[in-house]
C-alpha cells in the first residue's frame, strides 16, 4: 500500500536538491569559498532568495548543516558560500573537489528587510565569519546603489592572514560611493597598512552618521556584539534599526526540529535576522 503514499519531492521540504560545486578555494587557512550551481535549472529559478537568508547543505554521508548565502540575488545563477571548517559536515565539504555533487535546500529564514532599508543609509559592522551573511547585503546594495543612501563598512579581523575576502574589501576602498574601514586586532606581518585595533576603534573614522536614517547591520563573534551595540546606541541609532543575525544549532531550517528555539522564537523561521529591540526581549540573551 505504501507506493501510493509517495509525496512528490517538490512537496517534501526536507529533500536536498542536487547541486554542483563549480569553484572552491581557500579564503584563509580554515575558511573556504564555494560557488555552487543547481543541477536542475528549474530548481535554480525557483530558488528566490533575499540577502541574509540561509540554505541547508548536505554532504553525502556526512550530514546536513545551515549556511548563510554569501552571494547576492542581484547576480543570479551561482550561489556562494563562505564556510569555516568546524566538524563533520564542514570537514567533508572541504575535501570535495570542484564538480562534486552536494545537496541543497532553502532558502530559509527572514533575511534582511531590504525593502524597508530602501533609501536609507547602511552601516555594516562585521568581524570574522560575520562577513558570510553581510557580504550578501553589501553586494546587493552596491548592485542597486541608487536604491540606498550612504553605505559604510567597518570590518575587523584578528590578523591579516585571517581576513576573509581581503581582495574584495581592499578593492572597495578604491570606490568613491562608499566608506570602507578595515582593521586587524594585531599585525604579525609588518605589512598591514590599515588600522590596528578591535573593530570598535574604527567608529572614530566614520563620517558623521544620520542616526534616524541609518540601518546598522552587525555580525561577528559573540564577544563583538556588546561593544559594537554600545557604540551604535551612542550614535543614537534607533534600536529597531540595529540588525543582527543570530546563530543557533539548526537541524531542519523549517520550524520542526525545535533546535533553534530561543524562548518562543524559532530562529530558523523568525530569524536569523533580528533587530536589537527584539533581542532585548529574548530573556535568554540578556
Amino acid at each position: 500500500m505504501n507506493g501510493e503514499h509517495k509525496c512528490l519531492a517538490e512537496t517534501n521540504p526536507f529533500t536536498p536538491h542536487p547541486a554542483r560545486i563549480v569553484r572552491s578555494y581557500h579564503l584563509t587557512k580554515d575558511v573556504k569559498f564555494f560557488q555552487v550551481r543547481f543541477v536542475d535549472m528549474e530548481e535554480a529559478l525557483r530558488f528566490d532568495y533575499k540577502p541574509g537568508q540561509f540554505a541547508m547543505l548536505s554532504i553525502l554521508g556526512a550530514g546536513e548543516a545551515p549556511f548563510c548565502i554569501s552571494s547576492t540575488p542581484s547576480r543570479p545563477g551561482l550561489l556562494e558560500f563562505c564556510i569555516r571548517k568546524m566538524g563533520t559536515v564542514t570537514s567533508a565539504l572541504f575535501e570535495l573537489k570542484e564538480n562534486s555533487f552536494i545537496g541543497l535546500r532553502g532558502p530559509y529564514g527572514n533575511g534582511f528587510p531590504v525593502e524597508e532599508m530602501r533609501d536609507k543609509d547602511i552601516l555594516i559592522i562585521e568581524g570574522g565569519m560575520g562577513v558570510a551573511p553581510l557580504r550578501s547585503v553589501l553586494l546587493y546594495s552596491l548592485d542597486n546603489r541608487d536604491q540606498f543612501g550612504r553605505v559604510a563598512v567597518l570590518y575587523g579581523s584578528k590578523r591579516p592572514s585571517e581576513m576573509i575576502f581581503s581582495e574584495e574589501y581592499f578593492a572597495l576602498k578604491g570606490r568613491n560611493d562608499l566608506e570602507c574601514h578595515l582593521a586587524v586586532d594585531a599585525d604579525d606581518t609588518g605589512k598591514w597598512t590599515e588600522n590596528i585595533g578591535v573593530v570598535t576603534t574604527l567608529f572614530r573614522h566614520l563620517k558623521k552618521v544620520d542616526p534616524e536614517n541609518t540601518f546598522a547591520l552587525v555580525c561577528g563573534p559573540p564577544v563583538m556584539y556588546k561593544f559594537v551595540i554600545k557604540e551604535l546606541i551612542k550614535l543614537n541609532i534607533p534600536k529597531d534599526q540595529i540588525l543582527m543575525t543570530l546563530e543557533r544549532r539548526m537541524k531542519c531550517g523549517v520550524g520542526k526540529c525545535g533546535h533553534c528555539a530561543i524562548d518562543y522564537i524559532y530562529t530558523c523561521l523568525d530569524g536569523p535576522v533580528f533587530n536589537y529591540w527584539d533581542v532585548l526581549h529574548m530573556r535568554e540573551l540578556i
Binding site: 526536507f14 536536498p16 553525502l60 554521508g61
Partner: peptide, 13 residues
C-alpha cells in the same frame, strides 16, 4: 527520511 547514493536523496515514507 532518505536513502542516499551518489545519485541523490530518495525520500523514504
Amino acid at each position: 527520511m532518505f536513502n542516499f547514493t551518489e545519485k541523490g536523496y530518495q525520500e523514504d515514507l
